[in-house]
Design a protein around this nucleic acid. Structure first.
Lengths: 350, 350
DNA sequence: GTTAAATATGTTAACGTTAACTTATTTCGC
DNA sequence: GCGAAATAAGTTAACGTTAACATATTTAAC
């Protein structure tokens, strides 16, 4: 395409017979410029339709006033909420937000990091699930002095701030709720038992069982292992459906399940209903996230709500602080409370 | 923060005692470089942890290999699907995708455009609802030779490609389906009658009524007017709820409604149930989009499915073509078929 | 064995902006 | 009315890269 060359500062300057620097001063509103000159420049800027070249500016200023957000599981409505909260907070400080999706796999994380680094963003917020390769790359990026904040991702590294919902306690309370209702055989859907170390929700589940002296039956924990180079690190409706089928085919099936997230729970509900069982009478179920769908399933889903807006806002603030910092401060951490929302998937109305 | 200065091409060159250009040739795999030199350079690149500075490269090359996607209504799962499709297509051609959210209002559209233009993206895909201010700004951007493709946005402008689902026919079929079921008083929720010109789904609704000689009762069409500077251009669950309440309070309420999208439909369903009415017996309802939630509402929602992945893919392809073009080609247009998905919100199982 | 083509590397300048410095003029306090 | 401070510009160079051109060496062709 024969692109009209963009109008530059020098074009304006040449037209008016002044120095480019003077034009720059007008455009950036700094330094001394006489009212008369300013008027002339502003007029020329408007008529010649000048727009500053952000790339050149970034190169010179060595900052882009842009922040990257790497989002996994963008289909989950809570991601949208998160992104919005981040964007709003950043915007009020004059920063732009660019979002990268890393939904399919762990290697996509790396691609996303790379593309943000290459574009010299001023900082990165990572809201994808942990995975080894991604973590490695992330450490490199942090080492190269890039400000990084992680949201709900198990990543402990010096100088990297951390925001998360209290997934462990959330998982604990969800499970305890089921125990309180008298359930003893409680399943977990959405992760492999091997992930107990990194998946806090699973950990909370295990802790709750332990706290009530219920022996863990590993067959009741079903789902994939960690994200790999070609499998996402979260759990989908289909996985929930398949997981529940597996649990229902056990010789002694669970009477209740805690699903890793609401999508998984919804998939599980489908499997339960398909098996001709009733919720919550035959199988009670708890999800996590409180997505909009949770109020509309039948029965409505008991779930754990996490404060997404707040997490986004805090993450943005932490990042802005780090970007503005003169020397790297210690890792800070914020863990926010979750709230158990009891609906009819665990407790019948009558 | 005391940033370690990034390693540059010249640093590598200086270390090896060669010209920066040679290093550039190795990094970009073009031009002649001896195997020996290449090895040395690659080794230095690795040990010194060099990464090309994308900003400098973009400035010199006058292109960023980055495309921007402006997304409205990011909470809608179909947006996620769209974004993913776009990203995948672009990625396979070596382009990065940056997403901007413009969810709250029309002025946010403009902010998003601006920030993408400032970052010198190579092209922009716009998937937000039309609004006057935004359209004006968009025209300027197009005039400045930026390749632009719009998705489902009513924006006719020379040189701007257009992809959309066939919302008009979709709306027509949804409404016809209700008429076929014997309904005569059919409401529309999610837009003001004044939007008949720009909102194809509403137009389809009106056309269907006309085709069956049903007189349009304007009181049955309820919802907001176009997006303004502080109201989004789509419709939410809350708006659906409120709209339905309004319709139910009419002296002669509708026996069926067509909602502008699934969220609106879900909100409307809540209002119907709250009024003690049954779906579909007392009020039948059809949505649009076929979001995952639609299968899980009670009753499951009859809706119109639009091919989001395909739209995203085609939009990406159109944009890539435009970016590669030597001279601006004529506006092209692709309209994809929708599919009516009949569930129990219009037809009882028994 | 000469010449042309291919290979290997270097030099220069420019992409558009702005920080830092310099110069000239004006304002103002006392 | 004088010196200091404030105002209003201009100049230079650099941010990191690479296109375009120049130069030197090797290989191939006949």
């Amino acid at each position: 395409m024969i692109r009209k060359r963009q109008v530059t500062l020098s074009d304006i300057a040449a037209t008016l017979g002044i120095a480019p620097m003077t034009v720059s001063r007008v455009v950036n509103r700094n330094g001394y410029v006489s009212d008369e000159t300013r008027e002339k420049v502003l007029h020329a800027v408007k008529t010649m339709n000048y727009r500053p070249n952000g790339v050149a500016r970034s190169l010179k200023r060595q900052r882009t006033e842009t922040v990257g957000l790497v989002l996994g599981d963008i289909s989950n409505p809570y991601s949208a909420e998160l992104a919005n909260a981040v964007r709003e907070r950043l915007w009020s400080s004059g920063y732009n937000l660019f979002i990268c999706i890393s939904e399919q796999s762990a290697t996509e994380d790396i691609t996303a990091f790379e593309s943000l680094v290459d574009h010299n963003v001023d900082g990165i917020i990572v809201a994808t699930r942990s995975n080894e390769e991604g973590d490695d790359r992330l450490r490199d990026i942090v080492d190269s002095q890039m400000p990084v904040v992680v949201i709900g991702r198990d990543f402990q590294y010096d100088g990297v701030d951390y925001v998360s919902a209290d997934n462990m306690t959330g998982g604990f309370e969800a499970t305890q709720h089921l125990i309180d209702l008298g359930h003893q055989r409680i399943g977990f859907i959405g992760a492999d038992i091997k992930n107990r170390g990194s998946l806090k929700r699973l950990q909370g589940y295990l802790n709750a069982l332990k706290a009530h002296d219920i022996e863990v039956d590993e067959r009741l924990v079903t789902g994939r292992k960690e994200a790999t180079s070609d499998v996402p690190g979260y759990s989908t409706e289909r996985m929930g459906y398949e997981g529940m089928k597996r649990l229902l085919s056990l010789p002694s099936r669970p009477t209740a399940v805690f699903a890793r997230n609401d999508f998984t729970a919804v998939g599980a509900m489908t499997a339960i209903k398909e098996a001709g069982l009733s919720i919550p009478k035959d199988v009670a179920i708890v999800g996590f996230d409180d997505i909009p769908m949770a109020t509309h399933t039948s029965p409505p889903l008991t779930t754990v709500r996490q404060p997404m807006r707040q997490q986004g806002q805090i993450a943005a603030e932490m990042l802005l602080r780090r970007i503005g910092e003169d020397e790297i401060s210690k890792r800070s951490e914020r863990i926010l409370n979750c709230e158990l929302i009891i609906r009819q998937s665990t407790v019948s109305l009558n």
